[in-house]
Amino acid sequence: MATKTATTATTAAERELRVAEAIHSGEMEGLSVTAAGRQDAQEYVAGRINSDELVSRTRARYDLD
């Protein structure tokens, strides 16, 4: 039997809000987002990559894989 996974489609506006909230949260903790990180976030907002890819790129950038 095949296993189905639920996916939730998001709009660009929802993705943009999520990115803004994540950046703000990090800034509240004293962190900053690099230019490369912001570029990846824009790829996510535009829908060219999904959230899993965004996390994967970030983890790879900081050698967390």
Score class of each variant (00 low, 15 high):
residue 54 L to Q: 01
residue 50 N to K: 09
residue 35 A to Y: 11
residue 50 N to H: 03
residue 4 K to W: 00
residue 1 M to I: 09
residue 58 T to N: 04
residue 60 A to N: 12
residue 17 L to F: 13
residue 55 V to W: 09
residue 42 Q to E: 09
residue 61 R to T: 03
residue 24 H to E: 12
residue 63 D to T: 11
residue 61 R to V: 04
residue 33 V to F: 04
residue 24 H to L: 11
residue 8 T to I: 15
residue 44 Y to F: 13
residue 25 S to A: 14
residue 33 V to E: 02
residue 39 Q to S: 10
residue 22 A to K: 13
residue 39 Q to L: 09
residue 47 G to W: 01
residue 29 E to P: 13
residue 45 V to E: 00
residue 52 D to R: 14
residue 25 S to Q: 15
residue 57 R to H: 13
residue 64 L to I: 10
residue 65 D to T: 10
residue 52 D to T: 15
residue 46 A to K: 11
residue 52 D to M: 15
residue 59 R to M: 15
residue 58 T to L: 08
residue 8 T to R: 10
residue 59 R to V: 13
residue 11 T to D: 02
residue 46 A to M: 08
residue 51 S to P: 03
residue 21 E to S: 00
residue 23 I to D: 00
residue 29 E to V: 10
residue 36 A to L: 14
residue 32 S to F: 05
residue 7 T to F: 07
residue 51 S to M: 04
residue 48 R to Y: 04
residue 12 A to C: 01
residue 53 E to T: 14
residue 22 A to F: 13
residue 36 A to F: 12
residue 45 V to S: 02
residue 11 T to S: 08
residue 24 H to W: 08
residue 65 D to I: 14
residue 19 V to K: 03
residue 56 S to N: 12
residue 9 A to H: 08
residue 57 R to K: 12
residue 5 T to N: 10
residue 35 A to C: 04
residue 48 R to F: 06
residue 3 T to E: 07
residue 13 A to C: 01
residue 27 E to F: 10
residue 58 T to I: 08
residue 43 E to S: 09
residue 28 M to D: 11
residue 52 D to E: 15
residue 51 S to F: 07
residue 10 T to D: 04
residue 29 E to T: 13
residue 63 D to Y: 14
residue 8 T to G: 09
residue 8 T to M: 13
residue 43 E to W: 03
residue 53 E to P: 01
residue 49 I to Y: 03
residue 27 E to K: 13
residue 15 R to M: 00
residue 57 R to N: 09
residue 4 K to R: 12
residue 60 A to M: 12
residue 16 E to Y: 01
residue 36 A to Q: 11
residue 9 A to S: 10
residue 12 A to N: 08
residue 24 H to T: 13
residue 15 R to Y: 01
residue 21 E to K: 06
residue 39 Q to R: 09
residue 43 E to G: 00
residue 51 S to T: 08
residue 22 A to L: 15
residue 48 R to I: 04
residue 32 S to H: 05
residue 19 V to D: 01
residue 46 A to E: 07
residue 60 A to D: 14
residue 21 E to P: 00
